[in-house]
């Protein structure tokens, strides 16, 4: 079936004196071969393909944006780590106080 459509598309392409088989040539070939019913759905698939191609390029842009966000997040995480370190020092002091209180209770 693929070879059938290919050779017919190729003939359509040659009639128009072009070197590359284009989507229009495939659609015309389907008509010639008696698969006219398919043309609408095939064309819809073609449009869908166009949209997806555009979305892919947009996704690429988003990805680069994410990289920039990642750097900002990295800075934020560094600050968080510093804050946690400070809290740990304070927390250590608190922890040392409790045993003292405990000892005073015992005594």
């Amino acid at each position: 079936f693929i070879n059938l459509v290919s050779s017919e598309s190729n003939e359509v392409c040659n009639k128009e004196e072009r070197r590359t088989i284009a989507p229009e040539h495939v659609l015309k070939a389907l008509g010639v071969l008696g698969f006219g019913e398919y043309i609408e759905e095939v064309y819809a698939a073609y449009e869908q393909h166009k949209l997806e191609t555009m979305q892919d390029s947009l996704k690429g842009a988003k990805w680069s944006n994410r990289a920039e966000m990642t750097e900002e997040e990295a800075l934020a995480e560094q600050q968080r780590m510093f804050a946690e370190a400070r809290a740990r020092m304070n927390g250590g002091a608190i922890t040392s106080k409790q045993p003292d209180a405990h000892q005073s209770l015992e005594s």
Binding site: F1, I2, V5, S6, S9, T20, I21, A22, P23, H25, V26, L27, L30, F35, Y38, E41, V42, Y43, A45, Y46, H49, K50
Partner: peptide, 11 residues
């Protein structure tokens, strides 16, 4: 053309 295999696969 890049889109042609898409059309053929749908057909």
């Amino acid at each position: 053309a890049l889109a042609v295999p898409v059309l053929v696969s749908k057909a």
